[in-house]
Design a protein around this nucleic acid. Sequence first.
RNA 1: GGGUCUGUGGGGUAGCUUGGUCCAUCCUUCGGGGUUCGGGACUCCGAGACGCCAGUUCAAAUCUGGCCAGACCCA
Length: 475
Amino acid sequence: MVDLPDKAERFIDWYLAAVEAAELTDKRYEVKGMNIWTPYGMQSRRALDALLVREVERIGSRAIEFPTLIPQPQFEKEKEHVKGFDDQVYWVTKGGASALDIPLVLRPTSETAMYPVFALWVRSHRDLPLNVYQIVSVFRYETKTTRPFLRVREIHFFEEHTCQADEARATARVEEDLAAFERMAAALALPFAASRRPDWDKFPGAHYSIALDIPVGQGRTLQIGTVHHYRENFSRPYGIQYEDPAGTLRYVHQTTFGLSERLLGAVVAVHGDRRGVVFPSILAPVQVVLVPIAAPGGGAAPVEAARGLADRLRDRGLRVHVDDSDERPGAKYYRWESRGVPLRLEIGPREASAGTVTAVNRLGERTVLGPGELDRAVADALSAFDRTLTARAESAFRSAFSVATKLEELSGSTTVRVVPWCGQEACGHRIEAAIEGGVLGTPERPLPVDPGAPGPCIACGERSGARWVLAGRPL
RNA sequence: GGGUCUGUGGGGUAGCUUGGUCCAUCCUUCGGGGUUCGGGACUCCGAGACGCCAGUUCAAAUCUGGCCAGACCCA
């Protein structure tokens, strides 16, 4: 096995190597940007989906599933939206040998598939709110370099769509989604910034978009999700109306909340280290690996002790693997570290006879557990690992931001910059040019740095009305 | 859309300038045997590649053309 490239110096090379070493995907499929989920990768994806489902159902969403194909006329009803996706859609134009009368698009997102049907579903104020989600593949013909999880053409997509009675309720729903995401992010030990995107960068058709960005070092950011407020922008062209209690026909106000496997990419990017992937326990396909270390002379006690403990851990609901393969212990350690397993239990002849185990977590912390109540001690060690992982990520998050008040400071930034901006688009573009990245937008949550009151606009020097915005370099 | 560069086993590579010593190097990987076993063991046997199609030539991984795929830069 070969050492990974340096994460700080060559992030992308490191990332690709870490994903490769962890065997999360097989990228050798013959279509660019469409990767194969391996058994190991699939387990982490399922765990991620389960987390999303848990949190979004907690705020009242229910699962649905719409078809993959959308008829062209239906797709083109909302002008901004079409314009935004026009050059990214895959077309289905033939059925067998004959051309289709009405071409179909492979959904790049599902607004235009769902909303004509929402118009049928929503008739009365009693049908509201309508809160539904689906987890499906969407397709976008990306022209830039594709990378596993971060930029793909077949996207494993979570999308929640809601219809609310009025603008205020839609705004409240946006907040509920943000709160749900906070819980997901906490479970994944991923601190994030929520930013209201500038108008030129919002979702096509949205009233406003709040993007969830995760700093991944060196001033680079990963947008891993968005919550959008559509107001009536879609309900009008698609005719989604209801009768309010007074009998008046009104258009619904809609919101959406989207996430993808990029979240998995963010887990790799944020937590990974020189030995590869580090999974928070909620995502780990294997949460605990037990490594029995053979006694000289070949006694079976370590293997038996490992198997017995593994059974008890499984009874507690943990995902456990006993590595009794014929490799040397050191080789096993490296193997399971590169695959991100949070906790390793070593059981040699000494431990087997003492009824203890040596526990080493993925951050290198070593403790001896037992004797007695080993399964409980293991569960506690896993929780402790998650807390340490969170603390480490939060510490990195705090140092990932810094204030800048002059355009010259932006070039070559190795942090996400907090800058004063007057709000004019021209100034926004000057900021983007200076940092060679993008204006992420105005923070929706308190920042880890407290910049005080904003001074004059970093680009034009205008004093009045300047506000703090985040600027970074999206990956 | 314009330009520059690159395609060698599953992954990473050497060889290419100057064609022949290449039925292609090394590391890793994979299958099997033996000795081993508290941080990437050793050893033996085996598997696996010149992006595709033409051309030049006695001879092509190497030169030429086209195609395909990818990377980077510019619009």
